[in-house]
Design a binder for these strands. Structure first.
Lengths: 298, 298
DNA sequence: TCTGGTCTGTGAGCTTGAGTCACGAAACTA
DNA sequence: TAGTTTCGTGACTCAAGCTCACAGACCAGA
C-alpha cells in the first residue's frame, strides 16, 4: 500500500505548482510544459488519492478543503527538497573534482595542493586517480589531467612539459668506464614497454642489448628497484626529481622532452566556478617547477 | 537555476532508496525495477548535482560524505511525502464520493443522508450532481447513482423503482367534469421531451392534443408552474411525493412504474471501504420509502 | 446580447525518459 | 580455480508524459 516507491512524483509536483500559483496555465509556465499536461497530472493525482482536489468552474478553479491541506504540506516538502538539492549542488560548486593520472597526482599535484588551498580557501580540490580517456558526460569530473599529445573530448590546455631519462643508483653509475647501457640490467614497466624505444628515438641514442631485462608492474616498483641498484630504469622527470635532488638516483644522460605534455582537459559545456583559478594556478606552478637537467645533446 | 520544476525526482527517489538500503539491487527490488535502472538513476543524479555520491568497489559501494548528508535529508523529506500521501488517501477512504443525478440527490438522497451519518459516523458522503454516463477511470467517484434500465461501466444494483405520473394543482383538478387531458395546458421539460409519450405507452392511456404546450428548461421550474396552476406536468414520483403529501399537487391518474430504475453503479476494480455499507443503507432506505399511489389500471 | 478574452478539458498522436535484458568486470570466498 | 555477489553498460523497448489543436465554460465590456 501507498509505498514511497509508488508515489506519483510528477503529479505531486504539478499539483504543488498549481496549488501555489492558483492557475494551471501559470503552473504550466513554471514547469515549462503546456497547461494540458498540468491538467492531466492533477486529474491523475485526484484519481490515485481518490479525492477531489479542485472544484469550481474552469475559469476560476479553487482547491477543495483536502486540496488546500495537501497544498500546504506539499509546499513545505518541496521547499525542503529544493533547498536540499541546491545545498548539495553548492557543495559541488565549492569542490573541484579533478580526474588525474595517478602518478602525477601522487608525485606532483597533491604535494603542491596546499599552496592552492592557501590562495583559494573557498575552494576544495578532490583528486581521483584515473587513466583512460575521460567522458564528462558520464562521470562527474570538473576537469581532467592527462599526458597526451592531443586534445581529447574537451578543451585541453598543456601546462607541463614531460621529460624522461634513464636513472640508476649512484653506486651503479660509479662503475669504471662510466655508464654503459649494454652493461647494466635494464628495468621496464609493464604498462609502457615501448618506453625505452621511444627514448632512443627522441634522443637518437643507440640502444644496445642489455645483459638482462627486468619487468615491473608499476613505475613505483621499478623505481624502487633502481634505487636498490638492480639496474637502470627509464622514468619521467617529475617522478624522480626528489630522488635526484636527494642523491638517491642519478641521471647520467639527463632528461629529454617527450612530444606528449600534461594537459588540463576541461569540458566544453559549463565553465565551473573556480576552474579558471585552478588552471591559472596549475600553469603558474608548472612554470616555477625546477627544470630537469637536460640531456647532453648527442 | 535549480528550480523545483527541474528537480530530478525519479533520480532522487532512486538514490534515497539506495542510500537507505545500501545496495542497488535491494533498492531496485523496493522500487520494482532492475538494478540497472537504479544504477543509471544514481549516476544521472551525480551528474546533475556535480558531486560524487558513491564510492568504493562495485561489490561494496559506500556513500561519500556528501552522499551521506544528502541521504539523511532526503530520507526525511520522502518520509514526509509518503506520510502526506497516506494521510490524504486516508481522507479519501473516509469519504465516499457519489456522483448522483441532481434531481434524486436534492429531493431524495440528501434529505435522507443524516440517517446514514447517524449510523456510520466514521464515513462522510460527498454528493456531486452529474447526469451523463460515469467513467470511474476518469473521475474520482466511488459510486454513481443513475436512472437507467441497463448497467453501464461497472456493476449496477437497482435499488429504487421509478414511477411517473401527471400532476397538477388541486384547484385545476377540481374543474367540472374531472381532469381532462385534452382541456388542460400540458407542461414539458426540455431535457426530456418524450416523457409524455413514454407515459402514454406505459399506461396505454390515449394522449389527446392539449389546448397548449409549455416547455421549461428544468423539471423544478415545470413543477413550480404546475403548483401555480399553469397546467398539468409529468413528474417522477419521488420528486413530488412531498408536494402531494402536503396537498400542493394532486395526481389524478396515480403513478406508473417505468422500465428504468435507479441504480447504484460501482466500479469493478477496487471495492472501496464503506461502499458496501452505503449500498445496504440505500437499499434499505428505498424499501422503507412510501410507495406512490398506483395508477388506476386502465 | 453579442463579441472577444481567459481559462481549463480532452482526443489524437508523438517523443523520450526510464526501464529491460543480457553480458561483462571487479571483488570476495571456499 | 571456480563460484558468488554486486554493479556498470550497450542496445533496445515501451509507455508516461507531453504537445497540438480544438472545444466548452465563464466573464466583462461595448
Amino acid at each position: 500500500m501507498a509505498k514511497r516507491s509508488q508515489l506519483p512524483l510528477t503529479a505531486l509536483r504539478a499539483f504543488e505548482a498549481f496549488s501555489r500559483l492558483g492557475k494551471m496555465s501559470q503552473a504550466a509556465d513554471e514547469l515549462c510544459v503546456t497547461h494540458g499536461a498540468v491538467s492531466r497530472q492533477v486529474r491523475s493525482l485526484e484519481l490515485t488519492v481518490g479525492v477531489k482536489l479542485t472544484q469550481g468552474p474552469r475559469n476560476a478553479l479553487k482547491l477543495t478543503d483536502v486540496g488546500e491541506r495537501m497544498s500546504r504540506a506539499l509546499g513545505r516538502t518541496f521547499d525542503d527538497l529544493e533547498k536540499l538539492f541546491v545545498d548539495v549542488r553548492a557543495d559541488g560548486d565549492r569542490e573541484l573534482h579533478i580526474s588525474c593520472v595517478g602518478t602525477l597526482a601522487m608525485k606532483w599535484l597533491i604535494p603542491r595542493l596546499s599552496g592552492f588551498h592557501a590562495r583559494h580557501p573557498e575552494l576544495s580540490i578532490r583528486v581521483t586517480e584515473a587513466y583512460g580517456p575521460v567522458d564528462f558526460g558520464r562521470e562527474p569530473f570538473d576537469a581532467a589531467i592527462r599526458l597526451t599529445d592531443r586534445a581529447e573530448g574537451g578543451t585541453a590546455t598543456p601546462f607541463l612539459d614531460n621529460f624522461h631519462g634513464p636513472v640508476l643508483a649512484p653506486a651503479l653509475a660509479r662503475a669504471p668506464g662510466g655508464v654503459d647501457l649494454a652493461g647494466i640490467p635494464r628495468l621496464h614497466t609493464r604498462p609502457h614497454r615501448q618506453a625505452w624505444d621511444e627514448w632512443s628515438e627522441h634522443t637518437q641514442m643507440p640502444l644496445p642489448e642489455p645483459p638482462e631485462n627486468r619487468e615491473y608492474d608499476h613505475l613505483f616498483y621499478m623505481l624502487e628497484a633502481a634505487v636498490a641498484g638492480l639496474g637502470i630504469g627509464l622514468s619521467p622527470w617529475i617522478y624522480v626529481a626528489n630522488d635526484i635532488a636527494s642523491g638517491r638516483l642519478v641521471a647520467p644522460f639527463g632528461f629529454t622532452p617527450t612530444p606528449a605534455k600534461f594537459h588540463l582537459v576541461i569540458p566544453d559545456a559549463p565553465p565551473k566556478r573556480g576552474l579558471a583559478a585552478f588552471r591559472a594556478w596549475l600553469i603558474e606552478e608548472a612554470a616555477t617547477a625546477p627544470p630537469p637537467p637536460m640531456a647532453a645533446v648527442g
